[in-house]
Amino acid sequence: MSILVNRDTRVICQGITGKVGEFHTRGCLDYGTRMVGGVTPGKGGEKVADLPVFDTVAEAVAATGANATMIFVPPAFAADAILEAVGAEIPLVIAITEGIPVIDMARVMPVVRASKSRLIGPNCPGVITPGQCKIGIMPGYIHTPGHVGVMSRSGTLTYEAVWQLTQLGHGQSTCVGLGGDPLVGSSFIDILALFEADPDTHSILMMGEIGGSAEEEAAEFVKHHVTKPVAAFIAGQTAPPGKRMGHAGAIISGGKGTAEAKLAALKDAGIEVAASPADMGAAMVRAIENKHKNKKK
């Protein structure tokens, strides 16, 4: 078990004929992901990495039975690509593209919310269930199959955390990159609910960052609905207000979205907080041990 993706997930790539789309399609194939095709309008009938290319998502789904899509379409057209995937009723839509205008995403959000599709991203590294299925741009080899569920708003910071877990002998059930944009398809809460329900996930590590209030909402959710041990780190504790720190969503504005507020909410919910980014893996281990101790009492 795992969440979102496993060895049976059938994946297409929207934007497969682009340089980046092709590169990562090959990367996913190498990892063992069941890539079954790709979509680029006007290039139907071509082949990329021996996979059939279709003009539309609907055609690709009909021909391949795909149930997940990975989107590498350039920012100006990416929102439309997400809508096309949702229109074709693909259950899992993972948008890797960085730089989508936020108003475009504001048009996408109500459509996604009213549909049966789940959107992950945009501006995210993707989703991986170690040893089974990788959809996205993360380096596969740093992951190990195991029982820690990992979720984060950032890419390389997730790799860092996964690496620390692997070094400490803790494998991962599934790792989910939520994305660094202000509007993203899935929140910490959505993924927390999936991890809590997944018997193969025994503990949860989350990496948040400044901006917005997703971490505070996650803390509130953990308090009331999560029984598994949770550890967390918040990036940007030294970031000045009013400045966008790389990610479009990583900005403290109007006194909201500060690291202090997020850390306070996490601690209040009984979540083990990593003191520094070097402490993320160790914080997860502490959270697991504390839970065991409390159980024995």
């Binding site: 950032s154 390389t156 910071l157 780190f233 990036a235 030294t238 790389g246 990610h247 520094s276 980014p277």
Partner: peptide, 23 residues
């Protein structure tokens, strides 16, 4: 490399008693 890791690196510097000059 990466925005989240870049922010975290600043935090790490501060945690060990330094002051970051930039993101």
């Amino acid at each position: 490399n990466g925005a989240g890791l870049a922010m975290s690196t600043m935090d790490l510097v501060k945690y060990h008693g330094g002051e970051p000059a930039n993101f």
